[in-house]
Amino acid sequence: MEGTIDGFRYGVVTPVAAYLMACLGGALGLRCIVRSLIDSGSFRAGWSALGAASIGCGIWTMHFIAMIGFRVRETRIGYHVGLTVLSLAVAVAVVGIGVFLVGRRGAGRGALPLAGAVTGLGVAAMHYLGMAAMRFNGSIEYNALLVALSVLIAVVAATAALWAAVTLRGFLSSLAASLVMGLAVSGMHYTAMAAVGVHVHGATSWAGDNPTSLLLPMLIGPVIFLLLAGVVVMFDPLLVLGDGEWNRPAPKEPAETSKRQVSRSWSGG
């Protein structure tokens, strides 16, 4: 029989919390990528890796916070731990590939679409791996059109995020980009969830653990990582300044000083 899906079990709490986590991961990631672009030293790869991990963790955390609010009324839901952790690894890895491509080749016509496509497909793969990790007394069916739309949104969102990472330098610009990125990623998630249909196998509820008891322990690690990444970012002066000292032109000498130098050169001393 068809299951009754409720995607907003706790009202607006889970969508808002999920959106904020996506924005936090995006904001930290974009600032770290900006830092990697202005750092020609040995820490450049570290900043890129931290940025990729921040964005990947933010997207993954957004997904599973939103999933806490998802339920099928006829059966309880559990999650396969291995597939859930694998989805996190996929999220971080594909964002890392996208960051590496645009970081090395810039936002050119060839590199940016390729990086956006790889990253967007990876984000979609993370989502559907997370869905495959669900365990309940039934099976999931998908609306192919909405699945395709969700993948398209993921690719567009990833391309826009990578473009912002290599183009925008100001703190406020990156902040605005992270808010848009969070909205796009959340939109991708809920579009994908709208494609879900559930067929329940019989009327007996599966006696599994509730999603909150399983997901909350797994969410602790990525959330702590994002908080630590935030501390690192806030204590780096170049990132706090945004368009700060490192991006300002050298100050011009006062007119009087210039005149004195000219007169000295003509007088020979």
Rank of each mutant, 00 (worst) to 15 (best):
W163D: 03
T257D: 09
A203W: 08
N247S: 14
T61G: 03
S178D: 01
D6F: 04
K259P: 00
T61W: 00
A164I: 01
A177K: 03
T257Y: 02
F64T: 04
A111S: 15
S173L: 07
S54E: 13
G230R: 10
N210R: 13
A157I: 00
F43T: 13
R73I: 09
A160M: 02
A229N: 09
W163A: 06
L226P: 00
T159N: 00
I65V: 15
R169Y: 03
G120E: 08
F235C: 08
V102T: 14
V180G: 15
Y19C: 06
S178R: 00
I38W: 08
V16W: 02
A27K: 00
A194R: 07
L238S: 10
S258E: 09
G202W: 04
S36F: 11
D6S: 11
A111W: 13
V198S: 06
A27Y: 08
G120M: 10
A184V: 07
L101P: 01
F136N: 04
S87N: 07
A184C: 15
G96L: 04
F136W: 09
W47I: 07
R135Q: 15
G182N: 08
V198Q: 01
A161I: 00
A53P: 08
L219S: 00
L227Y: 02
N143K: 09
H201T: 11
A17I: 13
A107M: 00
H63D: 06
V92S: 01
A115W: 04
G26L: 05
M134D: 03
L83R: 10
V151S: 02
G221N: 01
M21Y: 06
P217W: 10
A53V: 15
P217Q: 09
L216W: 12
R169F: 03
V34R: 15
L183G: 15
F235T: 13
L28N: 08
M62K: 04
L121C: 15
P237A: 09
I5L: 14
G7H: 02
W47R: 04
V12Y: 03
A125S: 12
S265Y: 13
G41P: 08
M134C: 05
V13A: 11
E253A: 14
S213F: 05
S263F: 11
L114K: 07
I55D: 10
L30A: 07
A176W: 07
T119E: 11
G182S: 09
A27G: 01
L219N: 01
A27T: 01
V85P: 06
A133F: 06
S150N: 06
V223M: 12
V92C: 09
A115T: 12
N143P: 02
T204L: 13
T61F: 02
V72R: 05
A53H: 06
L28T: 06
L214E: 15
N247V: 02
V90T: 09
A124T: 00
A158G: 01
V185G: 00
M181I: 10
G187E: 11
A89C: 13
R104M: 10
S267H: 13
L228N: 02
T191L: 12
E256I: 08
F225I: 10
G51T: 14
P15H: 03
R35N: 12
I59T: 13
L101S: 04
I153C: 03
A195H: 02
M188R: 05
V13Y: 03
A115I: 12
V262F: 11
I59R: 05
G46E: 05
F225E: 01
W206P: 00
F8W: 07
